[in-house]
Design a binder for these strands. Sequence first.
DNA 1: ACATTTCGTAAGTCATCACTTACCGTAAGT
DNA 2: ACTTACGGTAAGTGATGACTTACGAAATGT
Lengths: 108, 108
Amino acid sequence: MAYVNALTALADPTRRAVFERLRRGPASVGEVAAGLPVSRPAVSQHLKALKLAGLVDGRPDGARRVYYIDPNGLGELRRWLDQFWENALEAFKNEVEKPKTVKRRKNP
Amino acid sequence: MAYVNALTALADPTRRAVFERLRRGPASVGEVAAGLPVSRPAVSQHLKALKLAGLVDGRPDGARRVYYIDPNGLGELRRWLDQFWENALEAFKNEVEKPKTVKRRKNP
DNA sequence: ACATTTCGTAAGTCATCACTTACCGTAAGT
DNA sequence: ACTTACGGTAAGTGATGACTTACGAAATGT
């Protein structure tokens, strides 16, 4: 069920920007906030949501706190998506292969 | 950039329910709405968003309209996620392999 | 031609949530 | 001990968006 959190977390543009910033390596809250047009508390709240979704994790570094990407949440999301993917491909094939076979109402 | 639409589309619970309903095969708007606790227009609006994201498509069937899952949007989302995945794994390895190598402030 | 079914859109309402400022706790430097 | 730097949380505000009802358009059946 955690893929739901990951999905909703990554839906927000700012939160996605935070996540993509961390993709270039670990960073502190202030460092992340410095590259974004929002305040530092906003970033802190976003990181909390991302952590809850298993998308990031953080370790203390003195008074600072360094965050980095956690593959767990990403993995769950990937599995959910893959499971969907196979199903969708097969269903789509059935759809495009017989577009004329759909039930007609009159003049059969 | 279409993965953004797919992400925001799948973030909503009801819209995800619509999408997962279509996973069990094509269905009309009314059929989808019958299995959900929301009105038919709501489902129609959700299908519009899903279509815009490339996640579903629809074909007319008389007065009805049958919707089915479109792999395109799902594929874009998958690619974006995969591209993230490799990066995240490597970065995470670097993180957990040297947790003691982080810069200490005093008493080095 | 008329009634019925099915769907999409418009307009309005309500809740959710992203953001801000203010404040407090904690860690390190002097 | 005091000051400075860094983060997390609380409280309040504004905007986005998900839902409803009402209406109109298009296709089928009698």
